[in-house]
Design a protein around this nucleic acid. Sequence first.
DNA 1: CACATTAATGGCAGCCAGTGCCAGAAAGGA
DNA 2: TCCTTTCTGGCACTGGCTGCCATTAATGTG
Lengths: 189, 189
Amino acid sequence: MGRPVVTTPGEIEQAAFRLFAAAGFEGTTMAAIAAEVGVGQRTLFRYYPSKNDIPWGQFDQTLGGFRQILDDTPDDVPLIDAVQQAVLRFNEYDPDAEPPHRDRMRLILRTPALQAHSVLRYADWRAVIAAYVARRRGLAVDDLFPQTVAQVSLALALTAYDAWLDHPEASLAALLEDAMGALRDYVAG
Amino acid sequence: MGRPVVTTPGEIEQAAFRLFAAAGFEGTTMAAIAAEVGVGQRTLFRYYPSKNDIPWGQFDQTLGGFRQILDDTPDDVPLIDAVQQAVLRFNEYDPDAEPPHRDRMRLILRTPALQAHSVLRYADWRAVIAAYVARRRGLAVDDLFPQTVAQVSLALALTAYDAWLDHPEASLAALLEDAMGALRDYVAG
DNA sequence: CACATTAATGGCAGCCAGTGCCAGAAAGGA
DNA sequence: TCCTTTCTGGCACTGGCTGCCATTAATGTG
């Protein structure tokens, strides 16, 4: 029971993106978003801990799915393929869900304040990979190997995403493969 | 000519680190730092564009040296070795300069606000690597290969630094090598 | 020796994100 | 009807940061 909620994270997100599109991220104040939603500014901060978190939406909850994808992978799949495939599948979207996803990622990857804030979000994403790699190899999560794989996986994903923003005609999946290919070339010499 | 300056970036840095050590980064206000230096708060912001930039000190100027190291590398050195060696040399410090360097890096890598802010600084560092790789391979800086190498190099450096904070007995150089070794293992399968 | 010119200082007012506090609103249950 | 629960939103406040501008302290120049 108790007083019913007056809005939803989704509603806030939509209102916010509307304003971001019009005035940019920096040019949009929390007061303006609150007004657009028709809610008190104080309430806004109960739905999103910071302005920087709004573009990320429900990212945290999707990490469970990411973990699931990895756990569903048979252990006889080579580690690098397991991780690579999981990253690919985690970033698959319906064709009609792609344009908004791209807008969201453009905002996140090209707005300095969000670019900075993102590393705090990526940390959880990396932890999922590190935990999986540690289990597969019988290591501790903090060991150098799992940590390296997690960091490198993020590096590849970021590179692919960034290229995707400049080349919308290419598929994100293909770019992720290309980035992995570049890494193999680099290491092979 | 004109009015002489009343302080230096170095003096500010020292005062700031003194306060950070006592009250933590978040617990130290710009007003407190200004008072410690004996300077107006407004002046502080002319020396450092933001509180987050103080721990980075003169990092920007060191990038010239990084570029130099790469440019001085003979082109017949395999690309991966050239980059790896440059990263190693860029992070070499006198034995007596190491403890403060470690404190600085601990602050940067373990304080969320600084961790976030750092990506904006890393961007310049990555650009140095990307530019070098692009030249060596006759590619554009924006191409996937140079960007991937730059991102991955940063991933390795961050992994090594993070491990270094937990294992002061190990040398940073050794950890960088280990991270590279982990990457080779990972890619080799 | 005045007197410009130049360049840095620092105070002040103000913006914006974010927080603690608390009174009040709106639901369900006894 | 009253009580409990839960969410709301206003208010005051902190802290980073900026624009504006008068002031200060140097270095020329006549």
